[in-house]
Measured scan of single mutants.
Amino acid sequence: MGFKLLSKLLVYLTASIMAIASPLAFSVDSSGEYPTVSEIPVGEVRLYQIADGVWSHIATQSFDGAVYPSNGLIVRDGDELLLIDTAWGAKNTAALLAEIEKQIGLPVTRAVSTHFHDDRVGGVDVLRAAGVATYASPSTRRLAEVEGNEIPTHSLEGLSSSGDAVRFGPVELFYPGAAHSTDNLIVYVPSASVLYGGCAIYELSRTSAGNVADADLAEWPTSIERIQQHYPEAQFVIPGHGLPGGLDLLKHTTNVVKAHTNRSVVE
């Protein structure tokens, strides 16, 4: 069995187990497998329904001669939608809004960016022009300005110390501490036991640490421990890039980060 097929099978099995364990909360999309990078042309966006009122959005972007996937989250909030992270750029984010209108038909009224990198804030200006209120932590807003990236308009308070959590509509926002970046936030959907790890969490097929220019490698494993301790009931975990899975993604990420750190020390 090929690795790609095995990865998709694991996603399907995880979703099936969740649907059985929580039949009222989960209505997993039966329309197909989780979209992969090879299936999404740059400039297009796919939506994948995880649970009743919960979707991931998947886009792709060219970077350094390669094409990478990027995940975000959409959560229903009454007759409105909360968006977590842009679709990595203005063109993708405009396509995301169009796809949401086509498939869901509810307005996106608020959006949260989970850290300051372009795959999370690139497209904020498109959201703002569409009347979406954009939010991020003060740290993310400051770092985005320093980096020359787009800056969300509103500040999220109460997320300055490791372990801080605040309720934001249908989700809980959690600051686990520094990891992929010093400002990275985690998003949890309690009604569906869905954990969105953003770039602080890796997919299972990833074996290298990737972009760690703004990471705190020493603190990252401790931050992941905080996530595990705060959300032990999480059933569906979405990484910032690639295929979702279960809580095993947290341990896998820790292993990859520690291996990278150990290699760096040896070198």
Rank of each mutant, 00 (worst) to 15 (best):
S7V: 10
S7W: 14
V11N: 05
V11K: 13
A15C: 06
I17N: 02
L24G: 08
S27K: 06
S30K: 15
S31L: 10
E33G: 08
T36W: 05
S38R: 08
I40W: 06
V42G: 10
E44Q: 07
A51K: 03
V54Q: 02
H57S: 13
D64A: 09
G65F: 09
A66C: 13
A66W: 14
P69Y: 14
N71P: 00
I74Y: 01
R76M: 13
D77H: 04
L81T: 07
L81E: 01
L81W: 01
A90E: 05
K91I: 07
N92W: 11
A95L: 06
A95C: 05
L96Q: 11
L97Y: 02
A111V: 10
F116S: 14
R120K: 09
G123N: 02
D125C: 04
R128Y: 05
A130D: 06
A130W: 12
G131S: 11
V132I: 15
V132Q: 02
S137V: 06
P138K: 03
S139V: 05
T140C: 10
R141V: 11
R142L: 14
L143M: 11
A144K: 13
V146C: 12
G148W: 06
T153P: 06
T153I: 04
S161E: 13
S162D: 05
A165R: 09
V166T: 04
G169K: 10
V171K: 00
F174V: 08
T182H: 04
L185W: 00
S191F: 14
V194C: 04
L195E: 02
L195T: 07
G197F: 00
G197E: 00
L204P: 11
L204Q: 02
S208Y: 09
S208L: 10
N211L: 07
V212Y: 09
A218G: 08
A218E: 05
E219G: 09
W220K: 01
S223A: 03
I224E: 11
E225T: 02
R226H: 14
Q228W: 11
P232T: 06
F236D: 15
F236C: 08
H241M: 01
L247P: 08
L249V: 07
L250T: 14
H252Q: 06
T253N: 00
V256A: 13
V256Y: 03
H260A: 06
T261N: 03
T261C: 11
E267G: 12
E267Q: 12
